[in-house]
Design a protein around this nucleic acid. Structure first.
Lengths: 157, 157
DNA sequence: GATAAAATCACCCGAAAGTATGAGGCTGAA
DNA sequence: TTCAGCCTCATACTTTCGGGTGATTTTATC
């Protein structure tokens, strides 16, 4: 619960921590200044260096990368977009779940189980289970057969 | 003569001028400080703001633009009325042989390497060699990717 | 709240797929 | 004839797939 919260906002937390550290550093520097009466130039220089760095860091972090676009033309021969309608009847007949259809679609795009797992943020084992169920429900042995059949019966564009 | 010199080094001159201005500004601020005993916080804040800006400016000016390659995909549509025309141009572009295309087609039908071997009356190893060459020529890693791409570019119905 | 279905994950194991490398025979073009 | 490309096959090895089994957690539904 808390771990997830931290994981989700880790960027914000990091930024906050950095700002906090800076404030603390400033106060500490001021204290030094007051106590030891360090020369003005050293103190100003320190602030200058720190904030120049901060500025550079900020700029690098926050600016969107200027892109020099290198155009590489790539020709794709495709069939015209025939509007795809999902065959919902076939879906129900097979008893396919939403998640399973999702996995099936990624399969058809040529992704490996590992890649599908990463894309869906689940473990490899989960995808294996899903694919096994898919093959069982579609009555096929291999993913290539599943893809072929799915296209044929309109589960997939 | 001099104009050219200036033109050539205008960036350096600009930078120099800016630095000079900053030094001057610092001195002026110090003077103010000494004379008017401005509060420490205001002075530090001013320096911080100025040098943060300087840092940002420096970073923006000095960082090299990140080069990003954008692949522009040009779609060439084939005639929908014609059931299937083999895209011979794509075939030649890829340098696919007849036999390789044959194997690719059987792959797309969902056959295993072993089944393809039996169907073509050759050994399993031969089919493996073919499929490796196919993947290499099509620039893919898996048979599912090969099938997907083959359908997309019109090598297969 | 109980229940069922779906989704998640784990482990093992054998089969299939894919990589790397080498090699021999065949054919058409230079 | 030489050479390049294709087709064939082999060995050895690594990776991925798929089947089988069992388990826990989420979600929806009554």
């Amino acid at each position: 619960m808390i771990t997830k919260l931290i994981a989700r906002n880790k960027t914000n937390i990091l930024y906050g921590a950095c700002l906090g550290a800076l404030v603390f550093l400033l106060n500490w520097l001021e204290l030094r200044f007051v106590i030891f009466e360090h020369s003005f130039e050293i103190y100003a220089g320190a602030i200058a260096i720190i904030f120049t760095s901060l500025g550079i860091w900020l700029a690098i972090k926050l600016t969107k990368p200027k892109v020099e676009t290198v155009v590489v033309e790539k020709y794709l021969y495709t069939d015209p977009a025939v509007p795809f309608v999902l065959n919902e009847k076939a879906l129900e007949d097979l008893g396919m779940s939403k998640r399973e259809l999702e996995v099936l679609q990624l399969m058809a795009e040529g992704l490996s189980n590992q890649e599908i797992a990463r894309q869906l943020f689940v473990s490899l084992n989960t995808i294996k289970t899903h694919s096994s169920k898919i093959f069982e429900k579609m009555d096929v042995q291999r993913r290539t057969q599943a893809i072929e059949k799915a296209k044929r019966i309109g589960l997939i564009p």
